[in-house]
Amino acid sequence: MSKKKVVLVVEYDGSRYKGWQAQKFDVDTVQEKLEFALSKIANHSVGVVCAGRTDSGVHASSQVVHFETHSERPLRAWTLGVNTHLPPDIAVVAANYVSPDFHARFSALTRRYRYVIYQSEFRPAVLAKAVTWTYKHLDENKMREAAKCFVGEHDFSSYRAIGCQANSPIRTVLNFSVEKLGQYIVLDIRANAFLHHMIRNFAGVLMAIGAGEKPVSWAKQVLDARDRTQGGVTAPPHGLYFVDAQYASEFCVPQVPLGPHFLPFRDEAVLDG
């Protein structure tokens, strides 16, 4: 029996997981939980590939993954059926059969993340691990102005983790918006690909600028330095969400509303800058 390739859109709260990727040690990861659930429905061992691996504590509202199977199942089996074997903080929200040449990682044209900052005098309880809290007042206009320097193709050495294993620090940021929504400030970034801790390092710099601790020009000074030690604090993982991956239309990858879901819904396919 020939194998079929299935694409899934997966949502997860990464608070209690040691990241996406399955590990040799006995720790909880999103990939390990998903592969276990899929294997139950497929009745054989299943391995999955994702569009973008997330770190410990990082979330996703629409992570895209693919896997291969020789089992004949209706699409509802890959969503509702799989969800019966998943913990409450992981859910498959869409599925489709795709062509054999589809690849969740290598077929992705762009990836998109949102970083959610919550401003309040008091720390949140309900969203304690879902947002990055600051008691400081942040000027979103200064943050928005500073973020302009990130758009385009750049050497982002200053904004990647020292231990980043990517072969090149060159990435292309297509859009970077900073928007205030009530007590939230949302950084919304779309790029061809990202470096390790890249968005959290963006957030750390922009929060310092927004708080008035650094001038707007500091973001570009850090970028031009090409030196991670010049980049300030890496922001916490709690506010970071993988929210979208774009593919060629012929792959028929399901589309779901941008998250996280506690933010106001905006019906948009791409950022408007």
Rank of each mutant, 00 (worst) to 15 (best):
G57P: 05
A60L: 02
F67S: 07
S56K: 15
R53T: 10
V64A: 02
V48L: 07
T69D: 04
S62R: 13
H66L: 03
F67K: 07
A60N: 06
S56W: 08
S45V: 09
S56A: 15
L80Q: 07
S45H: 10
Q63Y: 09
R73N: 12
H66D: 15
L75P: 06
V48I: 15
R76S: 04
A51F: 09
A60S: 09
L80R: 10
V82S: 02
P74D: 12
T79S: 02
G52M: 10
L75I: 15
H59C: 02
R53V: 02
W78L: 04
F67Y: 14
V82D: 03
V82F: 11
N83H: 00
E68A: 03
G81Y: 11
T69S: 14
C50F: 08
W78P: 01
A77I: 07
V65C: 10
G47F: 13
G57H: 11
S56C: 13
G47H: 14
G47I: 12
V48H: 01
N83G: 03
F67G: 00
V48S: 05
S56N: 10
V82T: 11
F67N: 07
V64C: 11
W78Q: 05
H70K: 14
V46N: 04
R53L: 07
G57Q: 13
R53S: 05
A77D: 14
A60W: 06
S61Q: 05
T54I: 13
R53K: 11
H70P: 06
G57S: 12
T54A: 04
S45I: 09
V65K: 05
S45R: 14
A60G: 02
H66P: 05
E68K: 13
T69M: 09
G57F: 08
T54N: 12
L80T: 07
R73K: 15
G81N: 09
G57L: 10
T79Y: 01
F67V: 04
N83A: 06
C50W: 06
Q63C: 06
G52A: 12
H66A: 02
W78V: 07
S56M: 13
T79Q: 02
A77N: 11
P74A: 08
F67H: 09
N83T: 04
G47E: 15
T79E: 01
V49Y: 01
R76H: 07
G81T: 08
C50T: 14
N83I: 04
N83P: 04
G81W: 11
T69W: 12
S62Y: 00
G47L: 14
V58N: 06
S61P: 01
D55C: 01
N83C: 03
H70N: 14
T54Q: 12
R73T: 00
E72L: 12
